[in-house]
Amino acid sequence: MTHLLHLDASARPGLAGKDAHGSHSRNLSQRFVSQWLTRRPHDSLTYRDIGQNRPSYINHDWIASAFTPDERREPWMQDALAESDQLVDELIASDVLVIGTPFYNFGMPAQLKAWVDQVVRLNRTVGIDETRLPDPYLPLLGDRPRHAVILTARGGIGFGPGGEMAHMNHLEPNLVTALNFIGITRIHQIAIEGQETGGEVLAASVTQAQQQVDALVAELQSAVAETAPALVSSAQTEPA
């Protein structure tokens, strides 16, 4: 059974085409998840609407607690990390991470950045080996083939790879860097562009993105089906 972790980061609670000022990124992410579960109804899902329920920003107590060894943490430190622990546990449990996010002012929404800051955690998702300088970091989530799907909606056009405005896009490159840093390297990106232009430009982009989502669901489900027997076989050979 494959487990999905679905995040929506848009400040807009509704869906484009259905609700006034609805979100295109939510449309894409919900399309991906609904198609996935329709084809594989026995798979499981954890959903977080971080656009409407923002994770906490990290503060002094969080930093002091996260960089204190487990055995030396005081009770208040455990409390300071409780939300982070839950978010990290959800990420570790996932096989496919689905992120629906708008493109705000050349980067990710503050809500999504707050989630990233909560899950990039020393000794939870990344380790340090000081004998490996100048790159001592050890990604801890490369233990199995996790996938991340980044579904984006942009107001302008040309912000994708190779586009005229690509150098101003700090959303997907930032997310990819953070996910690679903790060991998630199988990353897939689909974007809608042209919300500010509207009309045929937006409509064509929406149609293309929806088709890409459908194709990606089929592709990843085939990949999951291929890797599942190997994982089961590996588990059966482990000592009891």
Rank of each mutant, 00 (worst) to 15 (best):
A11C: 09
V232H: 08
K18L: 14
A235F: 12
F67G: 02
A191V: 06
R132E: 05
T207W: 03
H147C: 04
R48F: 09
L138G: 03
V119R: 01
I187C: 07
N169A: 12
D8S: 15
S234H: 12
P229D: 07
Q52L: 13
V224N: 06
A11G: 15
M165K: 05
S23R: 11
A114H: 10
G22C: 10
D89F: 01
I192K: 00
D214C: 11
N174M: 12
D95G: 03
A223P: 00
P13C: 14
T227I: 11
T207F: 03
E219P: 00
A114N: 08
D19R: 10
R186E: 07
A82R: 05
A240N: 15
R39N: 10
V217R: 02
R121V: 00
L112H: 09
G100S: 15
L220T: 06
F106Y: 14
A82Y: 00
N53Y: 13
L216M: 11
Q221C: 11
H60N: 05
Q189L: 09
L231C: 03
G158V: 12
R39I: 08
P239V: 15
N59E: 09
G163Y: 02
V232F: 11
I192H: 01
N169K: 06
F159D: 06
A191F: 03
D61T: 07
A93K: 04
P134I: 10
V206A: 05
V217H: 03
P134D: 14
H170N: 12
G183N: 07
P173E: 07
G142L: 04
V33K: 09
T46P: 07
L175H: 01
V98L: 13
G199E: 13
A215P: 00
G142E: 01
R132S: 02
T2Q: 08
G162Y: 02
R144N: 06
E83R: 05
A20T: 13
A153I: 09
L97Q: 10
A191K: 00
R72F: 13
A228D: 00
D19E: 13
L122K: 02
D129M: 00
H24Y: 14
D135T: 03
R40G: 04
A223V: 08
P55L: 02
H188G: 04
T177A: 15
S84M: 01
H42I: 04
M1I: 15
L138E: 11
G155V: 13
I128S: 02
D85F: 02
D95Q: 01
I184M: 03
M168W: 10
L171R: 00
Q212D: 14
L122I: 11
G194V: 08
S65H: 03
N174D: 09
S222N: 12
A230L: 11
D19A: 06
H42K: 10
A178L: 14
E200C: 10
L45Y: 04
F103H: 12
T46V: 09
D61N: 09
E172W: 05
H147R: 09
H167W: 06
A225M: 04
Y47N: 12
V217N: 01
G158S: 12
Y57R: 12
